[in-house]
Simulated assay, not measured.
Amino acid sequence: MAPKPKELFAELTHRGPHRVLRGDLALIGLPGLVFTPRSGSGLPAIAFGHGWLQPADRYLGLFRHLASWGLVVAAPGTQRGPLASSRLFAADLRTTLDVCAGVRLGDGDITVDAGRLGLAGHSTGGGAAVLAAAEDERVRAVVTLAASQTKPFATDAASRCSMPALHMAGADDVVAPAVGHSRLIAANWAGPVQFRMLPKVDHMGFAEGRHWSGLLIPGSPSHGALRITRALLTAFFLVHLAGQDRYRPLLEADVKGAPIEDTSELVA
């Protein structure tokens, strides 16, 4: 009997079977972090874009979780200033994918399959991930968390993205309200797309810990949002990058605290 979505969700909230290694992208020419399973060849890889003013350290739990399930996760630490360029950050995300696909990681025994690349990001990093996906035909899957509008517009870039995507947002986000940002990106998406709204979650509900930017950006981490994010991102990338259809029922079901919403009425 196939596992039920609730069972799959419970499974994916726990760490996976792989031991995790942490590395520094600066050693191979780009500032940032990389997390990998302890070993493996032909692995899927994800480049993750941080939120406005945020260090990659605010997503460490997510990175470790994904790596424990057999995914390489790399997060460039560029464009962290108040006037950061979304266009340049998108280019950095694409360069990060180049690094993952072209360099042996760990002790040289970890390799990435260039045909199994994905993008993800939070806030402006989510918008930059959309910009990067629109310009990179290698990208097979995209996830955004409380994505913010960018310049160039992520909402326009979404219309050039044909790969599967999952967009998640907080209903209490006053920084990048979903209707004008992530929900509109989802509505304009050219490929298979899903949008989930998390009630009682704000813009920073998807980040971890504390940071001085909390003086400027309203919101705080949400334990529930982090738990849901880890499970759904793991399922999404395992299905679309690793080909593990066992987890597809979870992606097709409403999850408590993250129901699937219709965005078709926003399309002109």
Score class of each variant (00 low, 15 high):
residue 160 R to L: 15
residue 126 G to C: 14
residue 136 D to N: 10
residue 149 Q to V: 14
residue 122 H to N: 10
residue 136 D to K: 10
residue 157 A to F: 01
residue 137 E to K: 11
residue 137 E to T: 11
residue 116 R to F: 02
residue 115 G to T: 07
residue 156 D to N: 08
residue 133 A to E: 03
residue 134 A to E: 01
residue 116 R to Y: 01
residue 146 A to D: 15
residue 147 A to M: 06
residue 121 G to M: 07
residue 143 V to W: 02
residue 161 C to Q: 01
residue 134 A to S: 09
residue 123 S to Q: 08
residue 142 V to E: 00
residue 123 S to G: 12
residue 122 H to I: 03
residue 157 A to W: 00
residue 122 H to V: 09
residue 148 S to L: 13
residue 136 D to M: 06
residue 156 D to L: 14
residue 114 A to M: 08
residue 138 R to I: 12
residue 154 A to M: 08
residue 121 G to V: 02
residue 127 G to R: 00
residue 115 G to N: 09
residue 158 A to H: 00
residue 146 A to I: 03
residue 130 V to Y: 01
residue 141 A to S: 12
residue 140 R to V: 05
residue 117 L to K: 06
residue 146 A to F: 05
residue 129 A to M: 13
residue 157 A to Q: 08
residue 159 S to K: 13
residue 137 E to M: 10
residue 116 R to A: 06
residue 147 A to D: 08
residue 163 M to S: 00
residue 124 T to I: 14
residue 163 M to F: 05
residue 147 A to H: 07
residue 126 G to R: 09
residue 153 F to S: 15
residue 155 T to I: 15
residue 141 A to I: 09
residue 135 E to A: 13
residue 118 G to T: 04
residue 120 A to V: 07
residue 132 A to P: 09
residue 136 D to R: 10
residue 150 T to A: 00
residue 141 A to E: 11
residue 162 S to L: 11
residue 123 S to A: 12
residue 152 P to N: 04
residue 131 L to K: 03
residue 119 L to I: 07
residue 162 S to Y: 10
residue 116 R to S: 08
residue 153 F to G: 04
residue 155 T to K: 14
residue 131 L to A: 04
residue 151 K to G: 08
residue 130 V to E: 05
residue 134 A to R: 00
residue 159 S to N: 06
residue 131 L to V: 03
residue 136 D to S: 11
residue 130 V to S: 01
residue 140 R to D: 04
residue 123 S to T: 07
residue 157 A to P: 03
residue 128 A to N: 02
residue 129 A to P: 11
residue 145 L to R: 07
residue 125 G to N: 05
residue 119 L to Q: 04
residue 117 L to Y: 05
residue 158 A to R: 05
residue 147 A to S: 15
residue 147 A to L: 13
residue 141 A to H: 07
residue 153 F to T: 11
residue 147 A to T: 14
residue 125 G to L: 01
residue 146 A to C: 15
residue 116 R to N: 01
residue 126 G to Y: 04
residue 158 A to Q: 04
residue 137 E to C: 06
residue 126 G to F: 06
residue 140 R to Y: 10
residue 118 G to H: 02
residue 131 L to N: 02
residue 150 T to S: 05
residue 155 T to L: 11
residue 148 S to A: 15
residue 135 E to G: 08
residue 126 G to A: 15
residue 115 G to A: 10
residue 129 A to L: 13
residue 163 M to P: 00
residue 153 F to M: 14
residue 162 S to A: 14
residue 129 A to C: 13
residue 163 M to W: 02
residue 157 A to K: 02
residue 138 R to F: 10
residue 160 R to E: 14
residue 155 T to D: 15
residue 161 C to D: 03
residue 116 R to Q: 04
residue 123 S to I: 03
residue 152 P to R: 04
residue 122 H to F: 12
residue 148 S to T: 14
residue 115 G to D: 09
residue 116 R to C: 03
residue 158 A to E: 02
residue 162 S to W: 12
residue 131 L to M: 08
residue 120 A to F: 09
residue 154 A to E: 01
residue 129 A to W: 14
residue 128 A to M: 07
residue 128 A to D: 07
residue 134 A to T: 04
residue 143 V to D: 05
residue 140 R to G: 11
residue 163 M to T: 02
residue 142 V to A: 03
residue 151 K to P: 07
residue 115 G to E: 09
residue 158 A to S: 12
residue 137 E to Q: 10
residue 149 Q to K: 15
residue 142 V to L: 14
residue 159 S to M: 10
residue 155 T to W: 13
residue 134 A to Q: 06
residue 130 V to G: 00
residue 131 L to S: 01
residue 148 S to W: 08
residue 129 A to K: 12
residue 122 H to R: 09
residue 146 A to S: 15
residue 128 A to P: 04
